[in-house]
């Protein structure tokens, strides 16, 4: 009798245990992906982010602790377009985790859901550290983020079909919030011109109607030559862009130099969720960038 009761209890625990307690372990490479995974997954997911908000996403080194995190993941979500090529493949292979290997539902390349810009299959490395698959910095694209959210919702539903309704409800909330915010953001930067350090804000520019008229970085990943800097001083003095924009890890000195020479102010924009206080999710990030750019 006692044994029977014990067995019954055990069976109940065994069956109900995973459904109740086990959250999906989501491994996101970048903070913004983690932010959207939390929006869509709610309390059904536990999110681990590999890259710290203050790090330059172009120069990440695989740490063994990242492999440990990947070992426990149910799904890995990443930016794609070769942004993580220097570290993610080795983490995924070393994780010894079949769930997150390419081709499995736990392997989610978020760039699959967006149309990249600046695709250049003819590019070679004489042009610097180029990305032939397209500009990888679509994370600031207000027009594409809805599709990324939907892709993540579908991926989570595929892994955890019992909670599909919940993920879809969260997606609907996400999409509604996105539509509302887009109304606030649209138009505020129309017609403005900026000079940027790296090709980082192109998607946002296309979505919000501002222009980037020049780059400090001639070729991605290669510091600018003095001749190029002199040319920039001349063109910026002539064209008087609204500001020079960069991120905390890109070209502080070069930007300061140009600001001093031309009188064009430099705006250091937050590049990721969590990179500044008060930027707790992706919406905060775009809010703050639009706010800083519009100079309000």
């Amino acid at each position: 009798m006692l044994i029977k009761a014990f067995l019954a209890l055990f069976t109940t625990l065994l069956l109900s245990g995973p459904a109740l307690a086990a959250e999906l372990n989501v491994l996101a490479t970048l903070p913004w992906i983690g932010s959207i995974a939390k929006d869509i997954g709610g309390d059904r997911v536990s999110v681990t982010v590999l890259v710290k908000p203050n790090q330059d996403p172009h120069h990440i080194e695989a740490r063994p602790s990242m492999i440990s995190a990947a070992r426990k993941a149910d799904i890995v979500m990443f930016n794609g377009l070769d942004l993580e090529i220097g570290y993610l493949p080795v983490i995924i292979e070393s994780s010894r985790n079949p769930k997150i290997q390419p081709g499995n539902p736990g392997y989610l390349d978020c760039s699959r859901f967006v149309e990249a810009i600046e695709i250049d299959f003819k590019a070679d490395r004489s042009q610097g550290d180029v990305h032939p698959l397209g500009n990888p910095h679509y994370h600031l694209s207000t027009s594409r983020m809805g599709k990324v959210g939907r892709g993540i919702a579908e991926a989570l539903s595929a892994l955890d079909s019992g909670n599909r309704a919940l993920y879809m409800a969260n997606l609907a909330t996400f999409e509604k919030k996105l539509a509302e915010r887009r109304k606030e953001w649209d138009g505020r930067l129309k017609g403005k011109n900026y000079v940027a350090f790296h090709r980082f804000f192109e998607y946002l520019a296309a979505d919000l109607g501002f222009r980037i008229t020049g780059y400090i970085e001639q070729r991605p990943g290669i510091p600018p030559s003095s001749g190029h800097m002199a040319g920039l001083v001349a063109s910026m003095s002539r064209e008087e862009p609204n500001a020079l924009i960069t991120t905390s890890y890109h070209g502080g000195k070069a930007a300061d130099f140009l600001s001093k020479k031309t009188g064009v102010k430099t705006i250091v924009l937050p590049h990721e969720v969590g990179s500044r206080e008060g930027i707790d999710d992706w919406f905060d990030l775009v809010d703050r960038i639009v706010h800083d750019l519009s100079g309000e």
Binding site: E61, A62, R63, P64, D82, I85, G86, Y87, L88, P89, V90, I91, S94
Partner: peptide, 8 residues
Amino acid sequence: GAHAAHKF
């Protein structure tokens, strides 16, 4: 050529 990922 191809960009191989670096180990720690």
